[in-house]
Amino acid sequence: MSLQRRRKLLPWLFIGPGLLWLLIFFLYPLLNQASVSLMSGNPEQGYDLTWTFSNYWDAISEYKEQFGRSILYAGISTVLCLIIGFPLAYFAAFHAGRWKNLILLLIILPFFMSYVLRTVAWQLILSDDGTVVSVFRTLGLLSDDGRLLASSTAVIAGITYNFLPFMALPLYVALEKIDPRLLEAATDLYASRATAFRKVTVPLALPGIFAGSLLTFIPACGDFINAALLGTPQQYMIGNVIQSKFLNILDYPQAAALSFTLMLFILVGIFLYARLLGARNLTQAAV
């Protein structure tokens, strides 16, 4: 084989394993589920591909409430993660000094425990006879028989807690890359610290904000653990519906149709979000 041909082959050799993996474990299941989403039948006799597009209309019209709730909860949680995560990442990047690594460790420490167990822990934290509820009742933030568990608040709190690292870490990476001398230059050029933050820090952190928001919002949209453990059916999100259709009711076509619809919503959402932040900024600010 000539050197030139070998050179051409080399990139394929590198990308090969990943490509194969994606073909088998991503593309094939995706196409498979796409066809399932167009089937009809019942769990006893099995399902056949009948190109039943009405699966989609049925799914959306029947579960628009859960769709809306998913997007709302995930959206609120993402904003909360940003509000909590930004100062945390900012402090770690600029002011933590030798505590930097400890703070980063604390951010990822929850991952040492299983997701479900972490959420169960929140059941205890928010339980009716727990400290949080009794403090809230004493302060008058909750009525004497008010609860935190089994409410939207509990579900959103759970999602926010569980996804905070996915927001904080990309933010940290983006902020840490900012040369502090740029902020000095901004204050030298008559920008107050607040203006320097707005005009320099935030634009340069945009790639981190974008990445963090996606990493939080997308999995939060499809999440069902928090609603199942911290909420009631009144708080169920679309993930709960998909999960029960797939695993309990065995209505595969509708479960698949719901999954694809959710995917579409998320893709459109990402597109709009990227437009809002400005794709140019996202790719160039990091340079």
């Binding site: 040369d179 001398r181 740029l182 000095e184 230059a185 901004a186 320099v200 634009p203 340069l204 900024n281 160039q284 600010a285 340079v287």
Partner: peptide, 10 residues
């Protein structure tokens, strides 16, 4: 005028 120039990359 900073040693590293400190131009705003964005």
């Amino acid at each position: 005028v900073f040693q590293s120039y400190a131009l705003f990359p964005h």
